[in-house]
Amino acid sequence: MTEPRPLGRTWHHHVTLVTAAQAFLALRRYDPEARTAAAPCNGTCTTCGLPPPPEPDDAL
């Protein structure tokens, strides 16, 4: 069997990255200017350059 390595450096590296990611997401969540993909595209913006989505078909 191999000897277990000390987890000090690995653990601290992991915790540092997770903390940085959490801070980034928290700042993005509370930024009113942040763009999100929560709202579907309605074709009124010119940012993406895509055509507007087709109208729903009422015949179904």
Results as ranks from 00 to 15, higher is better:
23 A>K: 10
34 A>M: 12
37 A>E: 06
14 H>I: 13
29 R>M: 15
42 N>L: 11
49 G>L: 06
11 W>A: 12
31 D>V: 05
28 R>Q: 11
21 A>R: 09
44 T>K: 10
45 C>K: 02
28 R>N: 13
4 P>G: 03
48 C>S: 11
20 A>E: 07
39 A>I: 06
45 C>W: 00
43 G>V: 11
49 G>Q: 06
31 D>L: 15
5 R>Y: 01
6 P>D: 06
17 L>W: 10
26 A>W: 07
42 N>P: 00
58 D>G: 04
44 T>A: 12
6 P>L: 00
39 A>P: 02
6 P>V: 00
27 L>K: 15
36 T>C: 01
46 T>Q: 03
10 T>N: 06
49 G>S: 12
23 A>C: 02
7 L>C: 00
16 T>D: 05
52 P>V: 14
50 L>N: 02
60 L>H: 13
29 R>E: 14
17 L>Q: 13
56 P>K: 08
32 P>M: 04
3 E>D: 05
37 A>D: 10
39 A>V: 09
50 L>A: 10
56 P>I: 04
29 R>K: 15
19 T>V: 15
40 P>W: 07
45 C>I: 01
10 T>R: 14
54 P>W: 14
2 T>K: 02
59 A>G: 09
15 V>F: 02
16 T>N: 06
3 E>R: 13
14 H>E: 08
40 P>M: 02
